[in-house]
């Protein structure tokens, strides 16, 4: 008969130990709280007691200007979010495709492999803002038939190309991290190289690279603001617009707050996902 909890009551020693553990937990909680309050208090004090603080407060933290600019900034921010939502799946597809192409082995695929290597090298090397500017101003200047001149879409394409290169490398590192014995097992079962990749390697690799991928996406959310440099009326451009008319930079702080509000949940989600995966991988190897 398997033993159950019912026939057991903690001994006096255990009751005392549990109380002690609670006290120790409480003590470390108190230390953490006090330390946090002291550190944050000192930081706030340091900033607000600086000689230029009253002017900084007026130009960067004006409640009236924040309120006045907020509706337009929020509308612009909608564009940032939309950009992110469109670009993200495209980046995933592009990145995965490039990574898979780079890990092919057949001779016929050589030119495609070469192209993939060239693409990742080029777009990881060029600063994202240059890609955005070149796409936004350069492509319309070519006066091509049937190619959009809308800087929103051109900028979106630039972000996809730039981030696709990074994500491809993340995927490739994931593919490389799968132990060769997995491919050997798939080969031994008679799967083709492509099937082994599709059914054995990629599913494991994807799971492994989720945390770095999400990290790239947090970064992408912020980089949607780069499109303000090609006059897309996003949150930052709207805020800069307001700043040059009213000589007050508060809307830029508002934009920063909006970006933080968007990225923090994703960052916490990344942490949580990473911890959960670690627990799962280690469950067997205690």
């Amino acid at each position: 008969m398997p033993p159950t909890e019912a026939d057991w009551t903690p001994s006096a020693r255990q009751v005392e130990r549990d109380a002690l553990r609670r006290r120790l937990r409480l003590r470390s909680g108190t230390i953490a709280t006090v330390a946090t309050v002291v550190v944050i208090g000192l930081l706030v004090l340091g900033v607000t007691s600086s000689p230029g603080w009253p002017r900084v407060k007026e130009f960067f933290f004006s409640w009236e200007d924040a309120k006045a600019a907020f509706p337009d900034v929020l509308k612009g921010f909608g564009k940032n979010v939309l950009l992110f939502l469109i670009a993200e799946p495209l980046i995933l597809l592009l990145g995965a495709a490039v990574a898979v192409v780079r890990s092919t082995t057949s001779a016929a695929m050589f030119p495609v492999r070469l192209l993939a290597v060239f693409y990742t090298d080029l777009f990881r090397g060029v600063p994202t803002i240059l890609v955005v500017v070149l796409a936004g101003f350069g492509i319309p200047a070519l006066q091509l038939q049937g190619v959009t001149t809308d800087t929103f879409w051109l900028g979106c394409g630039a972000l996809v190309l730039s981030y696709g290169a990074y994500v491809a490398e993340v995927f490739r590192s994931g593919i490389d991290s799968i132990h060769p014995s997995q491919v050997a097992s798939a080969d031994a079962l008679g799967l083709s190289h492509g099937q082994a990749m599709r059914y054995v390697v990629l599913p494991q690799a994807t799971r492994r690279v989720v945390p770095p991928l999400l990290n790239d996406f947090v970064s992408l959310q912020k980089d949607t603001a780069l499109l303000s440099s090609i006059f897309v009326f996003d949150a930052l451009f709207t805020a800069q617009d307001y700043a040059s008319y009213n000589f007050n930079y508060t809307p830029i702080v508002v934009v920063a707050a909006l970006f933080v509000a968007l990225t923090i949940p994703l960052a916490r989600f990344t942490d949580w996902l990473g911890r959960r995966m670690m627990r799962r991988e280690r469950a067997g190897a205690r």
Partner: peptide, 14 residues
């Protein structure tokens, strides 16, 4: 529950 002593010291003490 219970206790572990190692070299005379209770090591199950938190």
């Amino acid at each position: 529950d219970g206790a572990i002593f190692f070299e005379g010291q209770e090591i199950s003490d938190p």
